[in-house]
Design a protein around this nucleic acid. Structure first.
Length: 591
DNA sequence: GCCGTTTTCGGCCCGACTGTTTTCAGTCG
């Protein structure tokens, strides 16, 4: 399958061949940079290719575009295949082992004839067990031991961490770090700070008047299982839980430079350094150096960017997706913030009925209390539609009426506990889009709702054309349909997104005032950031919902806000930044 | 192989850490 990940892997394999066959190093880098750019996309590269939009990807020029063209048309690239044949096929699996790069992988796979990629890792393990790697020049026992450890890590490695999991792991470490009087600042950096949906390794930064000493404190964290490397300014450790964490430490006067440097992304930093170079400046985690060798130090990030003539670029935008050029023109968007959100329209109540999917668990009162804390103006309940095939229309109607009574009664009963007049209640429903694009509820029953959310919960196997037809048909089937929930249906580390012609769907939503959900559930984050930006480009409107099944999950909203920010979303793009009156008139529902 | 606010040719981010090295290559982010 030609998903982004496999295409990126292919380019990296070709780059690795270039590196060991003495091809120009900069051609290797071009391939590697392109691989990184493709891997960072949420939109399938193939979709961009179909729309002739490959040239929008930074670092992708005419040569690579023609190779990719061949790849999508024929399933292979002749030039790549010729290159890949120059090395033993068993070289490539070795590259996933930390500490083995192209040169070492080539030496091992050549010397020991690792020609079968499926067997290479197993053979490597046998070589280590028999101490045979020591036969290579300049290969001591310590290096073999290091590779042995990394090899074990590869075999036990699980998938990437969800952003929510990574934050919780890092928070424990940060609490420990901040406890030391040596530590002035401590923060998550890297993809964690950029709020990428999933995180590989966790990066933390600390500042101190004695950075090396502060790192010693970091090394004493009780949860550390092994120290992978430890220098004066950076350490890498593995925790008992198996996760790798890097901690970087600088003088507090360099805190801003460190934040900038280790927040990345790699491609953002490369682009930023290119800009700096054009101004005869050089950037590093220690500041900005001018041509005379003088280094300017930055204790905060604002002044670091300002020194380059740039507006402050929020971490979520630092992906080399045009943010630097936009900052130069001082035209960065004013990204949406948590406090802009005034309500949540995708909640599941604890009303008991034969539901098509899972029902909520918290009483309405708990949701209201939580919403009150958040200063929300409204909550919308959108339980799943009653079972479609097993119930009659009459039964469904009764259930919906009963549910409405249940919610209203509960709501009114809360008057003594919450100042409910400050939080309005809306009664919606989340309705399944069936395989053929029909909805799992009769139109006259949809009429009874304040608003309808529609979403896909089955038949994930359809083709792109079938999905597009299915979604467009569903969107057009009733005027009460206001929200398309978790549009791609992806589950991070679980289920691939469905393919659809999103441009068509976003255009339809834009023209018909249907809002695309940014589902804030940490394992969904759907729409993904790339598609959010695409939706905004096509003038489609959005809404951030938590899809809560228990009241505490209202706190997941931050994940949706971060994802929206990564998609360059502003307050004006989001339905639930409106106050209740305006929301009501958009939804066209009377309270 | 890519790219342009000095350039369409001649550059290409920058530094940390490790290992096996007396000065550097490989790997990583």
């Amino acid at each position: 399958m030609l998903d982004n990940r496999s295409i990126a892997d292919l380019l990296r394999r070709v780059a690795a061949v270039f590196e060991v066959t003495d091809t120009e190093i900069f051609r290797c880098r071009a391939y590697e940079n392109t691989a990184a750019a493709i891997e960072g996309l949420d939109i399938p590269l193939k979709n961009l290719w179909e729309k002739n939009r490959l040239d929008e990807i930074p670092g992708l020029g005419p040569n690579l575009i023609s190779h990719l063209d061949e790849l999508f048309k024929t399933g292979k690239v002749k030039h790549f295949e010729l290159e890949l044949k120059k090395v033993p096929a068993g070289m490539f699996p070795l590259l996933q082992i930390r500490g083995i790069g192209p040169k070492l992988a080539y030496r091992i796979s050549t010397k020991f004839a690792l020609n079968d990629p499926d067997l290479a890792l197993k053979q490597l393990k046998e070589l280590i067990d028999k101490n045979q790697l020591l036969g290579l020049d300049g290969f001591a026992a310590s290096l073999q031991e290091k590779i042995k450890k990394s090899l074990e890590q590869v075999s036990t490695q699980s998938s990437r961490l969800l952003l929510s999991q990574a934050l919780s792991i890092s928070e424990d470490y940060l609490i420990y770090l901040r406890r030391s009087p040596l530590v002035n600042n401590a923060m998550p950096l890297g993809s964690l700070r950029r709020k990428v949906a999933t995180v590989g390794d966790i990066d933390l930064g600390i500042s101190s008047s004695q950075p090396a000493k502060a790192l010693k404190h970091a090394l004493a964290y009780p949860q550390i299982k092994t120290v992978i490397s430890a220098g004066e300014s950076v350490i890498r450790v593995q925790l008992e839980s198996g996760y790798s964490i890097d901690v970087k430490s600088v003088l507090t006067s360099d805190w801003g430079s460190l934040l900038q440097h280790y927040t990345g992304s790699k491609l953002h930093n490369i682009a930023l350094r290119n800009l700096a170079k054009s101004k005869k400046l050089s950037l590093s985690e220690y500041g900005i150096k001018n041509s005379t060798g003088k280094t300017y130090h930055f204790s905060d990030e604002n002044s670091f960017y300002a020194h380059l003539g740039l507006a402050y670029i929020p971490p979520e935008l630092r992906e080399d997706q045009g943010e630097i050029g936009t900052a130069l023109k001082n035209q960065l968007p004013r990204l949406v913030e948590l406090l802009d959100i005034k309500g949540d329209l995708h909640l599941h109540s604890d009303f008991q009925y034969p539901s098509s999917h899972d029902i909520g668990e918290s009483p309405l009162k708990d949701y209201l209390i939580k919403a009150y804390e958040k200063k929300y103006q409204y909550l919308g309940f959108a339980d799943h539609n009653p079972k479609f095939s097993e119930l009659s229309r009459e039964q469904r109607k009764k259930i919906l009426e009963k549910r409405k009574n249940y919610l209203i009664t509960q709501y009114l009963a809360c008057e003594n506990d919450v100042k409910i007049s400050s939080i309005k209640l809306l009664i919606g429903l989340e309705i399944d889009i069936r395989r053929n694009g029909d909805l799992a509820l009769e139109p006259d029953l949809i009429d009874l709702l304040d608003y309808a959310i529609i979403s896909v919960h089955n038949s994930f196997d359809l083709t792109e054309a079938e999905n597009t037809k299915r979604l467009l048909k569903a969107l057009a089937s009733h005027p009460k349909i206001k929200i398309l929930a978790h549009p791609t249906t992806r589950i991070l580390n679980g289920r691939q997104p469905i393919q659809a012609d999103w441009e068509k769907i976003f255009n339809y939503c834009a023209q018909n005032q249907i809002f695309l959900e940014i589902n804030a559930f940490p394992s969904r984050l759907d729409l993904p950031d790339d598609l959010i930006r695409e939706a905004i480009r096509l003038k489609a409107q959005l809404i951030i919902n938590t899809d809560s099944h228990i009241a505490s999950q209202l706190d997941n909203l931050c994940y949706g806000v971060w994802t929206a920010r990564r998609g360059w979303a502003e307050k004006k793009h989001l339905l639930n930044t409106l106050n209740f009156k305006d929301l009501q008139s958009v939804l066209n529902c009377n309270y």
